[in-house]
Computed example of a mutant assay.
Amino acid sequence: MRRKNACMLFLTAFIWGTAFVAQSVGMDYLGPFGFNGIRSLIGGVALLPCIYILEKINKRTAGEEGSTKTLIAGGLCCGLALFAASSMQQIGIQYTTAGKAGFVTAFYIVLVPVLGMFLGKKTGWKVWLAVAMALAGLYFLCITESFSVGRGDIYVFIGSLLFAVHILIIDYFAPRTDGVKMSCIQFFVAGILSMFPMAAFETTTVEGALRSWGPLLYAGVLSCGVAYTLQIIGQKNMNPTVASLILSLESCISVLAGWVILGERLSVREGLGCVLMFAAIILAQLPEKMGKNRQPSTL
C-alpha cells in the first residue's frame, strides 16, 4: 500500500511538472485569478463522471467513506487553502524569476514537518536528512542568480506556507472521507472563490479564455482533476513530510519537461539538483529498523 501511495504521489508530481508549459502559455491571455478559477472549475466538472463511475463500480454503502458533514468540511477547508495558496503563488510569479519562485515554493518541504510538529506528528531523523538533501537539490536546480528578497518572493513564500497547510489539511481529512468527492468539492470552492477577485481586479474575456483552451484543459483536467485527486488518495496513511518530498519532484520534472518539450538545456548544476532530489526521495522511503517485539515504524 505504501509503494502504491508513493507511485500516486510521483504521478501527481509528474503531471504538475509537465503542466508548467501549459500554465506559462495560459497566462498570456488570462490573469492569475482568471486562469486559476477557470481551471479549478474545469477540474471539478471533470471529476463528476469519475465519481459516478466509481460509485457504480465500488457500490459503497452509506457511511462507508465517512459522514457527509466530514466530506463537506474537508472539501471546504481544502478548497479555501488551495485557493489561497495557488493565488499567492500565481501572483508572485509575476514579480519574480521562475528560479526564485521554484526554490521559495519548495520551502513547503521544510514547513510541512515544522507545522506537523505542532500537530503531534513525529518525524524521524532520516526524513529530516532527506529534507536537507532535497533543499540542497532544489537550490542547485532553481537558483541560477544571486538570491534577493523582493515583492514576488514574499508572495510566493506565503503561497508555500499555505501549500504546507493544504497538505496537512489533506492528511487530516483523507483517511476520514471519500478522497475523490472531497477533491471535487475543493475545486468548485477554489474556482468560485477565484471568480470574485477576478471580477474585481482583472479583465477576463471569452476570447482570452478561448485562446487558452488548450492550457486550461490540460491544467484543469490533468493538473487539477487528476493530479490533486491522486494527491488526496495517495496521502492516505502517508506521512505528510514524505508526501511533500515526493511532490517536490515537480521542480525536477518541470526542468526535464522544459528540456524535452521546449529544447531547454539541462546544465550540470541542474542535473546535480535532480540527483540530490531523487536521492532524498529514496532515503525518505527506506523503512526504519525493527527492534524486539516492535512493529516497523513508518516515516
Rank of each mutant, 00 (worst) to 15 (best):
Q23E: 09
Q23K: 00
S24T: 11
S24C: 01
S24F: 11
V25E: 04
V25D: 01
V25K: 13
V25S: 05
G26M: 09
G26H: 10
G26K: 12
M27L: 10
M27Y: 00
M27R: 07
M27A: 03
M27G: 10
D28F: 07
D28Q: 12
D28L: 13
Y29L: 02
L30T: 05
G31I: 05
P32T: 05
P32K: 12
P32S: 06
P32L: 06
F33C: 13
G34P: 14
G34M: 08
F35Q: 03
F35V: 03
F35P: 04
N36W: 13
N36I: 15
N36S: 15
N36H: 14
G37N: 05
G37M: 07
I38T: 10
I38M: 05
I38V: 13
R39H: 07
R39S: 09
R39Q: 08
S40N: 11
S40K: 07
S40I: 07
S40G: 05
L41V: 05
I42C: 00
I42S: 04
I42D: 00
I42P: 02
G43V: 01
G43I: 02
G44F: 11
V45R: 07
V45F: 15
V45W: 14
V45Q: 08
V45H: 06
L47F: 15
L47K: 10
L47I: 14
L48W: 11
L48R: 03
L48I: 14
L48H: 05
L48T: 12
L48Q: 08
P49I: 12
C50L: 12
C50K: 06
I51L: 11
I51K: 03
Y52D: 08
Y52L: 07
Y52C: 02
I53W: 15
L54N: 06
L54E: 09
L54C: 05
K56E: 04
K56A: 09
K56R: 05
I57T: 03
I57W: 15
I57G: 03
I57H: 12
I57P: 09
K59H: 12
K59R: 14
K59P: 14
R60L: 11
R60P: 10
R60Q: 08
T61R: 07
T61H: 01
A62L: 08
A62W: 01
G63T: 03
E64Q: 12
E64N: 05
E65M: 14
G66Q: 06
G66T: 07
S67K: 06
S67R: 03
S67I: 03
T68I: 02
T68E: 14
K69D: 07
K69Q: 11
T70E: 15
T70Q: 14
L71N: 04
I72Q: 12
I72D: 15
A73Q: 02
A73W: 00
A73T: 04
A73F: 07
A73H: 01
G74P: 05
G74F: 00
G75W: 10
G75M: 04
L76D: 01
C77Y: 14
C77I: 07
C77R: 08
C77T: 10
C77M: 13
C78G: 11
G79E: 01
G79S: 02
A81Q: 01
A81Y: 12
L82E: 06
F83C: 00
F83V: 03
F83T: 00
